Simulated assay, not measured.
Amino acid sequence: MTKTRIAFLLLPVLLGACSYGRTVNNDEYTDDSRRARVRGRLNGSDGVLLLGTDRTGRNGQDDGTGTGLGVNAYLWRAALNTLSFMPLSSADPFGGVIITDWYSPPAAEGRERFRVTAYILGRQLRSDGVRVSVFRQELRNGTWQDAEVAASTGPDLEDKVLAEARELRSQTASN
């Protein structure tokens, strides 16, 4: 009876070892400059990640990114700078997500508020590397109601983030 229990408990470990160290080719773990190797993946490419992602190259050397961020450092810093006028709710530099808290502009006199979510989509500084979603609410009859946001608001913020990222990169290059 105890041998059966031990075998049952060791089964996930043995199955996980079947895919140890294999190369993953989906966008979740790779970019154009390198291939990440996933260790300890259980049951295919969408399985459970047991031990994390190996960030070293095939020869055991570091992949050279050196930023410690999961996303482009210029886009990350530029997005934080661009949204700095709003209170920050959360920021995940490895997932590339910045979420602000509700912000009411002084001109709105407390009748409308905005919230922004910015997504940094990769490790390269590209024009499609950032997405910004803007949410707006209006105060009606004492309750906050969702309201339409101008279609150009998100793309305008994206353009400001990209311009700031280019400026940060040029400042770094000139130093």
Rank of each mutant, 00 (worst) to 15 (best):
G95D: 08
Q171F: 11
A79P: 07
Y74F: 15
A7I: 14
D92N: 12
Y20H: 14
M1S: 14
Y119I: 01
V132S: 03
N59L: 12
A108T: 01
V134A: 00
R136C: 01
T30S: 11
R35E: 09
G110K: 03
L15Q: 09
T117C: 05
V97Y: 03
V130A: 03
A165H: 04
G154W: 00
T100N: 02
R41C: 01
N141L: 03
N175W: 12
G16F: 12
G21P: 10
A151N: 08
I98Y: 02
T4S: 14
D54P: 04
R35V: 08
N59E: 12
S89C: 10
V97L: 08
A165F: 00
Q171P: 07
G47I: 00
G96A: 05
A163M: 11
S170W: 12
E138P: 05
W76M: 08
R169W: 09
G57P: 03
Q171E: 14
L157I: 08
N72L: 06
E138Y: 04
P93W: 09
G16I: 13
G66P: 07
T82M: 10
S89Y: 13
D156L: 04
W144H: 03
S90F: 08
A78V: 12
M1L: 14
T4F: 09
D156S: 13
Q124K: 03
A108H: 02
N25G: 09
L51C: 06
T30Y: 04
G129Q: 03
Q124H: 03
L69R: 04
A17H: 10
R37S: 09
T67A: 06
V97T: 11
N175C: 08
D27A: 14
L121R: 15
L121S: 09
W144P: 01
A78K: 10
D54I: 02
E138N: 05
Y119T: 04
M1A: 15
S170T: 14
W76Q: 09
S89W: 11
K160V: 10
D54N: 07
A17M: 15
Q124W: 00
G68C: 07
M1D: 14
L157F: 06
R126Y: 01
L42G: 02
L11V: 09
S127Y: 06
F85Q: 12
V38A: 00
V134W: 01
I6V: 15
T56A: 05
D54Y: 03
T4K: 14
G129N: 03
R136L: 02
G96M: 04
T117V: 12
E164Q: 10
E28S: 15
L139K: 04
I99Q: 15
S133C: 06
L75C: 09
V134S: 00
L80G: 07
F135E: 06
L9K: 11
A150K: 07
